[in-house]
Amino acid sequence: MRKLSDELLIESYFKATEMNLNRDFIELIENEIKRRSLGHIISV
């Protein structure tokens, strides 16, 4: 996760939620978004 750019991480989050991927996977992405202080972009 740390090698993904912020932009790609956010894009991955939206794609994963759109495709209804595994909730655990989405939570991993959400946690990384929060760690990077980007939660305001997706309202996490």
Rank of each mutant, 00 (worst) to 15 (best):
H40P: 06
E32T: 01
L28H: 05
F25E: 09
I33S: 00
S37F: 12
I26A: 02
T17H: 13
D24L: 06
K3L: 15
L8S: 11
L9A: 00
E11M: 12
R35A: 06
L9T: 00
K34V: 09
E18A: 14
Y13S: 01
L21H: 07
M1H: 05
E30F: 13
K34F: 13
I29V: 06
A16D: 01
N31H: 11
R2P: 06
L4P: 01
F25Q: 09
L9H: 00
S37K: 14
F25C: 13
E18F: 07
M1C: 12
I33T: 01
L8C: 09
I26R: 04
Y13E: 00
K15E: 06
E32N: 01
K34R: 13
K3F: 14
S37G: 15
L38S: 02
I42P: 03
L4Q: 04
K34D: 06
I33L: 14
K34M: 12
E30I: 15
G39F: 14
I42V: 08
S43G: 14
L38K: 03
K15R: 13
I41M: 14
S37V: 07
S5Y: 04
I42C: 03
D24V: 06
I42G: 04
I26E: 01
L9N: 00
I42M: 07
G39S: 13
E32S: 01
N22A: 13
M19D: 10
E7A: 13
I26P: 00
S37A: 12
R23W: 08
E30M: 14
R35T: 04
N31E: 13
I33Q: 00
N20P: 06
I42D: 03
L8T: 09
M19N: 11
A16S: 06
V44M: 13
M1E: 03
S37H: 14
T17I: 15
A16N: 03
R2C: 08
G39L: 12
I29G: 00
I29R: 00
F25D: 06
D24N: 10
S5I: 05
F25I: 12
S12L: 15
F25R: 05
I10R: 02
E27Q: 12
G39E: 13
V44F: 12
R35M: 04
L8K: 15
I41G: 03
S43F: 11
I33V: 05
F14R: 10
E7K: 13
N22W: 05
M1W: 15
I33C: 02
H40W: 14
L28K: 07
R36W: 02
E7S: 10
L4E: 02
I41V: 11
N22L: 07
N20D: 08
E27N: 11
I26F: 04
M19H: 09
S43R: 09
L8E: 15
R2D: 15
E18S: 11
S12Q: 13
K15Y: 14
L8P: 01
S43A: 13
L28Y: 04
F14I: 10
Y13H: 02
E7V: 09
I10D: 00
I42T: 05
R35Y: 06
M19V: 06
E11R: 11
V44C: 06
M19W: 07
K3P: 03
I26G: 01
G39C: 15
K15H: 12
Y13G: 00
E27Y: 08
S43Y: 09
A16M: 05
S43H: 13
S5M: 04
L21A: 14
M1N: 03
D6C: 04
L38T: 02
L21T: 08
L28V: 10
D24T: 09
G39D: 12
I41N: 06
V44L: 13
E11C: 08
R23A: 12
S43C: 07
S5Q: 03
A16W: 07
L8N: 08
E32Q: 01
A16P: 01
D6R: 03
L28R: 06
N22F: 06
N31P: 00
I26S: 02
I29Y: 09
R36H: 01
H40T: 06
E32D: 01
I42Y: 02
I10H: 02
L8D: 15
K3Y: 13
I10K: 03
M19F: 08
D6W: 05
S37P: 02
D24E: 13
R23G: 07
N22K: 08
L9Q: 01
S37M: 12
K3W: 14
I42F: 05
M1P: 05
R23H: 11
E18W: 07
I33D: 00
A16C: 05
L38H: 02
E18V: 09
K3T: 14
I33R: 00
D6S: 05
F14V: 08
Y13K: 01
I29M: 09
I42W: 03
V44G: 14
I10W: 05
N31F: 11
H40I: 07
N20H: 11
D6T: 09
E30P: 00
R35I: 05
N31L: 13
L28A: 11
S12K: 13
F14Y: 13
I41H: 11
K15Q: 09
E18I: 10
V44K: 11
E32G: 01
D6A: 04
I33Y: 01
Y13I: 02
R2T: 15
M19E: 11
E30N: 05
R36S: 00
L28P: 03
I41E: 06
L38F: 03
K3V: 09
I10Q: 02
K34T: 08
M19Q: 13
T17D: 04
R2E: 15
L21P: 04
S5K: 04
E11T: 09
V44Y: 10
L28T: 07
I26W: 03
I41L: 14
V44E: 12
F14A: 05
N31A: 14
L4R: 02
E7D: 11
K3G: 15
K15S: 08
H40E: 07
K3N: 15
H40A: 09
E32I: 02
R36P: 00
L38E: 02
K3M: 14
S12F: 15
A16E: 04
E7P: 06
K3Q: 15
N22Y: 05
L21Y: 11
E18L: 11
V44S: 13
M19S: 11
N31V: 09
V44W: 12
G39P: 05
K34I: 12
K3S: 14
E18D: 07
N20A: 10
E30Q: 08
E18Q: 12
A16K: 03
L28M: 13
L28I: 12
K3D: 15
I42L: 12
L9W: 01
E27K: 12
S43Q: 14
K15C: 10
L4H: 03
N22E: 11
D6E: 04
M1F: 15
I10T: 03
R35Q: 05
L21M: 14
F14N: 06
E27R: 10
A16V: 04
M19Y: 07
F14Q: 06
M1T: 05
L4G: 01
F25Y: 14
M1R: 01
N20Y: 06
I10S: 02
K34P: 00
L8Y: 07
L9F: 03
L4I: 06
N31I: 11
R23Q: 11
E30Y: 13
E18R: 08
S37I: 05
L9S: 00
A16Q: 05
S12R: 08
E11Q: 13
R36V: 01
L4C: 04
L8G: 08
M19A: 12
V44A: 14
R23T: 10
S5H: 03
M1L: 15
Y13R: 01
I26C: 04
L21V: 11
N20C: 10
V44H: 12
G39T: 12
T17C: 11
G39A: 11
N20V: 06
R36M: 01
L9P: 00
R36C: 00
G39V: 10
S12N: 09
K3A: 14
T17L: 14
D6I: 06
L8Q: 15
N22T: 10
L21C: 14
T17W: 14
S37Q: 14
E32M: 02
E18Y: 09
L4N: 02
E11G: 05
D24H: 08
S5C: 06
V44T: 13
H40N: 08
L38I: 06
E11P: 02
I41Y: 12
S43V: 12
N20L: 08
E7M: 10
R35V: 04
L8V: 14
I42R: 02
M19L: 14
T17G: 06
L28G: 04
R2F: 14
H40F: 11
E27G: 07
T17V: 15
I29D: 00
S5E: 04
R23C: 06
M1K: 02
I29E: 00
K34C: 07
K3E: 15
S12E: 12
L4D: 02
L4F: 09
R2M: 15
N22R: 09
L4M: 14
L38M: 06
G39W: 15
I26T: 03
N31Y: 10
N20S: 09
E32K: 00
R36T: 01
L28C: 07
E7Q: 13
E11S: 09
N22V: 06
S12Y: 15
Y13N: 00
V44D: 12
L21E: 10
G39K: 06
N22S: 13
I41R: 05
R2W: 15
E32L: 02
S43P: 10
L4T: 03
S12C: 15
R2S: 15
S5W: 04
A16F: 07
T17S: 10
R2A: 15
R2K: 15
I26N: 01
L21W: 11
N20T: 06
E7C: 09
